[in-house]
């Protein structure tokens, strides 16, 4: 599909897993730099789903699977949260029978199917030389799998949980912390007015970074995180003490969604 005479190469880019602010700036940066350097950029839509579900047919409607990215598109999209390319939690190596695309159902009819051969053929059909998956450890784990199959992968880490190994920073973490602090500041006035305890559950899956840093910044008195099973009586005692020693008579605890009771 790519015209190798007019481009130096073709780059495919996708965003998988949870959406975060920062994905569109990354898509924009890749597209503009690549275009400047003479590369074509194909945006693969909906995480790994687009490159999995597309049809290798020039007459097919693949508009939900991929599109050519231009400066005009990404300059506008790059300002906003979310992801212009959309996302999914599709894992091409583990596709349930019901989720196998219709045109592949004859070939792949097990209960769980590995459609990696189709993904690789689709990448070749599109003429993609390098693949840039942007995602967390799940999305990128499939990128690692493709890398072992010979696909040229350069990954970009993204997750509001900030728990992709190897990097200090994952796209989306800062805005998540910013929003968390902002929302807590909106909620604390009600807690104070009613002299109550304020309990806030936050995303973070198995890691406590999304609770720890806002707490350190003063957004909460205490936090409980997945990495340490907590005693609820100990927490109650501390929060009541915090509330009663606060002239405004309230206290706040941040609870990671993956936190666990001790016992």
């Amino acid at each position: 599909m790519a015209n190798s005479k007019s481009t130096k190469g073709v780059i495919g880019i996708l965003t998988g897993g949870g959406d975060v602010p920062g994905l569109n700036p990354a898509i924009r940066a890749v597209t503009i730099r690549a275009n400047r350097e003479g590369y074509k950029v194909i945006g693969l839509r909906r995480g790994w789903a687009g490159i999995l579900e597309m049809r290798r047919d020039h007459k097919a409607d693949n508009s939900n699977c991929f599109e050519i990215l231009t400066d005009i598109i990404v300059n506008k999209a790059g300002r906003t949260g979310g992801t212009y390319l959309h996302t999914s939690r599709t894992r091409p190596s583990h596709v349930r029978n019901a989720d196998v695309p219709d045109h592949l159902k004859d070939t792949y009819n097990a209960e769980v199917n590995d459609l990696t051969p189709e993904v690789i053929k689709n990448l070749e059909w599109l003429g993609i030389d390098y693949l840039i998956p942007i995602g967390g450890d799940d999305t990128l784990s499939y990128g690692v799998h493709l890398h072992t199959k010979g696909v040229k992968v350069v990954a970009i880490p993204k997750t509001m949980d900030n728990d992709v190994p190897g990097t200090d920073y994952c796209i989306g973490f800062s805005t998540c912390v910013t929003r968390t602090i902002q929302m807590i500041n909106s909620l604390r006035t009600s807690a104070g007015s009613h002299e109550r305890l304020l309990v806030l559950e936050v995303f973070g899956r198995y890691a406590g970074f999304t609770a720890m840093l806002p707490t350190m910044a003063g957004a909460a008195n205490r936090c409980v995180i997945p990495e340490y099973k907590f005693n609820i009586e100990q927490l109650a005692k501390l929060l009541v003490e915090d509330r009663n020693s606060n002239p405004s008579k309230y206290s706040i605890v941040l609870i990671s969604e993956g936190a666990m009771f001790d016992g």
Binding site: G22, M160, F173, T175
Partner: peptide, 15 residues
């Protein structure tokens, strides 16, 4: 917490 425009770090680092 996923909502809204990217802040400074999430505009600079992705770039």
């Amino acid at each position: 917490v996923r909502g809204g425009d990217p802040d400074a770090l999430d505009s600079i680092v992705p770039m």
